[in-house]
Design a protein around this nucleic acid. Structure first.
Lengths: 356, 356
DNA sequence: TTGTAAGCGTTATCAT
DNA sequence: ATGATAACGCTTACAA
């Protein structure tokens, strides 16, 4: 009973297989009555068409895939929802495909594109350091969303994101304006060449522009092995930092890390924001509901999702060539950042006493 | 160049297609030299085998799928990782398939099973109120993980989870032992028949057993439309609750909702745990790092993942019939729950004044 | 060890 | 409007 094929349905209905196919696929050339009869039979028969056979034969799919690297990154959830909405709007189906941290998103893209006869792709997350030649094997349009690499412009990829360098600069500048001079940062692993790198560069540039000496001691790099941008890594990195340096502000390059940092600070007897300000990045719900709520750079997720979809569909329809769109992040000032507790005690030789 | 098939590779190598196939699939009957030559050619040719054609023809797949309802539910992330690890261990591939809130997981299961020739399935999340006859169309073994319905035993499904009723009872009892009598609860929509219902029933039973009157006023049901078990829903439900009732403890049936609740309480000028204790459920990282850390029922995710995989593979190999495994949750007492502030003021007629 | 050819279950093309 | 039939790209008997 369970391995019925289109032939069985055809036999049951006393029609040819092509008529059954037409009924299933809403083809115009079919008698409404036969169609209804066939669909009814199908519903009663537990028949499930074989997708592999369909994909194999079909030419015209009206489907795209969204490849997400890093399950459990809740930042992507909203983005994905937005993309799905846009796809529905365009009457496209949207296949969500997770990519494990150690998997190669490009290999998966190549496979799934052939398998499902996709019209386009969206990449979310990951470092995206693929050789150009391999990228060119991709024969459908694709957009990198919230991905940015230092050499991206040369490569002429279509991309939509905030300017991570600039936004990171903005946050650092904000902390400096508050009066902070000892600003620690939690950042991506040293080898990172993606948004993590850009955010670090923005921080460094801001310090330089404001004449604040840069100290490697204030920079805590994530462990490449570790779960990136997690509560736990924020916690660990902050503990390391606290072991041999002092600071009045801590800039975590994600909201989740900022929250992990808050706990490490609390355990060290340091109040937030009283004795140490904490800032995040991304603008996630979790930082909004946290107490104190976390000052952050909010990425315009809705806009990014819409622009990503628009650009992709325009490319699919030949109306656009790959372009790079930048959106403005919004600095959301919340409860976790205030001016440093006691400027007087920040002596000019660079040491400082923190109140207990 | 991009639409190469196995034939093109065969031609290039001057061999037959079956030899190419043998090379790709590590078949034994092949000359190591020809194999090497073929694989080399493939690597140089950007050839990607078409998965649909493969799936269509193959009989033996060694693959299962995990269907997850509710993207962005971080609780499932660890479970999924655990399942993936177990699959690797068994040398199975594990396909992760997301199911949208409004989609029917069973329909998707039926389709993907045929499409990918799966050997088994795991269902994660969702209410799972499917008619038995439809479930029987599933012709491969499946396990419901962390899913539980009131009528599950009758249906003889394989299932692995905690006993949500009992764990919820445990948490309520704990709050009662602390001295709380006015215990509010944030729970699933009224129509829920799944774990949400069971958790509510556990709460009700505990109150009854301890002679504490049950009041509908203290029960805040989620909006069915709303994002379930989210920060925001916890926040909203708590605000509603605060409008016309008072309580010394708040039991949110998920850690995320508990955190949303904390913010609502803070905005109402109520300190946690000083003036109101807050408890969650699940044992997620986010509650551990929150300040105050959230008292919760920790689900033994690792064990559940392992047991789910073990049971599924045993069923696949005919060693087991569907069984229902229950794991013990652990009450993790953290910072968010303490005895009520001032028992004296909780008068016996059931009213109470909260300190400002 | 290798090649030839028959399907897998659909959709698309062509008759009718 | 409908039915027969040839693909789609692969795996796997079976033959060589």
């Amino acid at each position: 009973m369970g391995n019925m094929t289109i032939k069985d349905i055809a036999k049951k209905c006393g029609v040819g297989v092509s008529t059954v196919s037409r009924a299933m696929n809403n083809h115009p050339d079919i008698n409404p009555e036969t169609k209804e009869k066939i669909l009814k039979t199908i519903a009663q028969s537990n028949y499930v068409p074989n997708n592999s056979a369909r994909n194999l034969k079909r030419t015209d799919t009206k489907a795209i895939a969204v490849l997400v690297k890093g399950i459990g990154n809740t930042f992507f959830s909203d983005l994905v929802s937005g993309l799905e909405r846009e796809c529905q709007h365009m009457n496209y189906s949207c296949i969500l495909q997770h990519v494990e941290e150690q998997e190669d998103e490009l290999d998966i893209a190549l496979h799934i594109t052939k398998e499902k006869k996709l019209r386009g792709l969206v990449f979310l997350g990951g470092n995206f350091s693929h050789p150009k030649e391999k990228m060119e094997q991709l024969e459908v349009p694709y957009v990198l969303s919230t991905i940015r690499t230092s050499d991206m412009e040369d490569k002429k990829y279509a991309a939509v994101s905030v300017d991570d360098f600039k936004e990171s600069y903005k946050m650092t500048e904000y902390l400096i304006h508050l009066g902070h001079k000892k600003i620690a940062i939690l950042t991506a692993p040293k080898e990172d060449k993606s948004i993590g790198k850009l955010r670090l560069l923005g921080y460094q540039k801001a310090l330089r522009d404001y004449g604040i000496p840069y100290s490697e001691k204030l920079v805590s790099y994530m462990d490449a092995e570790e779960d990136r941008y997690s509560f736990r890594s924020g916690y660990k990195l902050t503990r390391q930092l606290l072991m041999d340096t002092e600071f009045t502000a801590l800039y975590a390059t994600s909201d989740t890390m900022a929250i992990g940092a808050c706990r490490a600070l609390k355990e060290a007897g340091i109040s937030v924001p009283g004795q140490c300000s904490v800032a995040g990045f991304d603008g996630m719900d979790t930082g909004e509901f946290y107490i104190p709520s976390i000052t952050t750079i909010r990425q315009p997720v809705e806009q990014i999702a819409k622009a990503t979809a628009d650009l992709l569909f325009d490319m699919i329809n030949g109306k656009e060539k790959p372009r790079q769109l930048i959106f403005e992040g919004e600095l959301v000032e919340r409860e976790s950042t205030i001016p440093p507790a006691d400027k007087e005690k920040q002596s000019s030789n660079g040491t400082m006493k923190r109140e207990k």
